[in-house]
């Protein structure tokens, strides 16, 4: 088996003595969709923050393509090819949708501040390439007609699509989606699923954090389950569905995962 794309090893984080994440380790294979599920407060979002540098881990290591990410700032991690979205949807409300996308890719397009201020030849080339990429992604998520509208006018679900498209802009090695369909109406969930599937067919790797178990079971090749900050299962959707510990964790809190 090839070297893992992302490797997290022994991640720990506690707040005032309470373990939010305890000894969580996992690794992702390039070109796959991996899901991370778990009940509320199981430490999923904290794990994302630890991997992407938005919170500092108390202990543990993270590496992407064998390069250590531990201790890097969030912006450095993003530039090294690991992009993320947020659970509470975030867009730049007053910027046009196209500008939202351009902003997401600008730091890795090989141009500097002077290029941008002087609009150098290099900048113009990078800019038109980025605009083409943005057009392609907006087409994919069905917002091409709205490209020049300020992102603030979009609905909640549309903003989630803009955030998703933004994360894909710099052609990252891996995209972490933090609850991409939470709060999105059921018909649109299918549309998001189709978009992710199409991107995956084009070779994009994903780690998807979700509450909607059906959604991830359909979409992913592998499922990691967290409960109370610990990893309790890690395997194919079928294996996880049959796992005793998983059933127990879910039955104690909310709906059964396997109600297909």
């Amino acid at each position: 088996m090839s070297a893992p794309l992302l490797k997290a090893d022994g991640l720990c984080k506690s707040y005032a003595g309470v373990h939010a994440v305890a000894e969580v380790s996992f690794s992702l294979v390039e070109g796959t969709i991996t899901a991370m599920i778990g009940p509320n407060g199981s430490g999923k979002s904290t794990t994302v923050d630890l991997v992407t540098g938005f919170q500092a881990a108390d202990a543990g290591m993270v590496s992407l393509d064998g390069r250590a990410l531990t201790g890097l700032a969030p912006e450095q991690i993003a530039r090294s090819g690991l992009m993320r979205t947020f659970q509470q949807v975030r867009v730049y409300d007053t910027l046009a949708i196209e500008e939202n996308l351009l902003t997401a890719a600008q730091e890795t397009d090989g141009t500097g501040w002077l290029d941008a201020l002087l609009r150098s030849r290099r900048f113009r080339a990078a800019d038109s390439a980025a605009r083409a990429r943005a057009a392609e992604l907006l087409d994919l998520v069905g917002l091409a007609r709205m490209a020049q509208a300020p992102a603030g006018v979009l609905s909640y679900g549309q903003k989630k699509l803009v955030a998703l498209a933004g994360a894909l802009m710099p052609r990252p090695r891996l995209v972490i989606l933090d609850e991409p369909v939470a709060g999105v109406n059921p018909t649109r969930v299918l549309e998001v699923e189709a978009i992710i599937r199409r991107l995956h067919q084009a070779g994009q790797s994903f780690l998807i954090i979700e509450h909607n178990v059906d959604f991830v079971m359909r979409l992913s090749q592998r499922v990691i389950v967290l409960d109370q900050g610990r990893k309790i299962a890690d395997g194919t959707p079928e294996e996880v569905r049959a796992n005793e510990a998983v059933l127990e964790a879910y039955l104690g809190t909310e709906a059964e995962p396997a109600d297909a």
Binding site: R90, V91, A105
Partner: peptide, 11 residues
């Protein structure tokens, strides 16, 4: 508008 989002975009 959103410092965290900007950082997640490598800024």
């Amino acid at each position: 508008q959103d410092e965290s989002l900007a950082r997640s975009h490598g800024i």
